Simulated scan of single mutants.
Amino acid sequence: MTDAPHKGLLDLCVLGDFQVVRDGALLDLPPSRKTRALLAYLAVTGKAHQRERLCEIFWDIPDDPRGALRWSLSKIRQVLGEDEPALVADRNTVSLKLGTDYARLLPLVKADLSMASTEELEAVAGSIRGDFLADLSLERCFEYEAWRAGVASEVEIAELGMLRELIERLAGERRRR
């Protein structure tokens, strides 16, 4: 990873293996799975979290959880580069305001899919590259795993609904020809 600021649009991809992309190029991510999972968790939830709560979710008590959180946040800032201001961290809370491919899927989760355009459904369905955060399981972080599994189920249900809707539409178009 370089220390130079990154240029261009940053996109966090969580629908499959976790990736951070800037202008179509994959960025190097920190080697720590917990740091990558923390970055994904903050981006997907899109809200402020208490530092203490993040420490409970991601780090064991015998470790120095606050120190580990500070270290992880410094690594996340390096990944974000020029988008670093999107990470807001004060003494008590941490939040990240960046878009993800999951955020583009979210409006379709509970929507009437018959109202969405075929192009929109194809684009969102095409962005799903696999299971939600497929490469970021943390077996010993039970709360994180429960959250990840819940969102993965939601994504899978939404994907099946979109595919069903697309199949019905495309089958109907063939009949008209």
Rank of each mutant, 00 (worst) to 15 (best):
G81W: 04
A103V: 03
G8P: 11
M162C: 01
K75E: 15
A48P: 03
L26P: 12
S127A: 15
V109R: 02
L98R: 05
L121C: 10
K97H: 12
M162S: 02
G81P: 06
S114W: 01
L38T: 06
L166M: 10
A86M: 03
A25P: 01
G130N: 12
D63E: 13
S127G: 14
D131G: 01
D131T: 06
S153E: 14
E56F: 03
P5E: 09
R176A: 09
V79I: 08
D90T: 06
S74V: 05
D90Y: 03
R91D: 14
S127P: 02
A40C: 12
L80R: 06
L106I: 02
L163I: 11
F18P: 11
S153V: 04
A103K: 06
D131F: 01
R70K: 10
G130H: 00
M115T: 13
K75L: 13
C13W: 11
V151E: 11
E143G: 09
D112W: 00
Q50N: 12
V151L: 13
V109F: 02
P65L: 00
F132L: 08
M1K: 04
K34S: 15
L42A: 11
A48E: 14
T118L: 01
A37N: 10
E143Y: 08
F18C: 10
C55A: 14
L166T: 04
L73W: 07
R174G: 09
R91Q: 11
G130R: 11
G8Y: 10
L108P: 07
A43P: 14
E52G: 14
A103Y: 05
W147H: 06
A125M: 00
V109P: 00
L133K: 09
G172E: 11
V21K: 02
L166N: 06
P65H: 07
E159V: 01
A171D: 09
R174S: 04
V79G: 05
L9T: 12
S153M: 02
C13M: 13
S32D: 15
E143P: 00
L113V: 02
A48S: 15
S95G: 05
L166H: 05
V20N: 09
D83N: 11
K47E: 15
G150P: 04
S117Q: 09
R91S: 10
D112P: 02
L121S: 02
I167R: 08
D112E: 13
P65C: 00
L160G: 15
P5W: 01
G67C: 03
I76T: 07
D112V: 02
G126H: 13
A103C: 05
L163M: 10
E156G: 03
A123R: 15
E165K: 04
G24C: 08
L38P: 05
K34I: 12
G24Y: 11
P107D: 09
H6F: 08
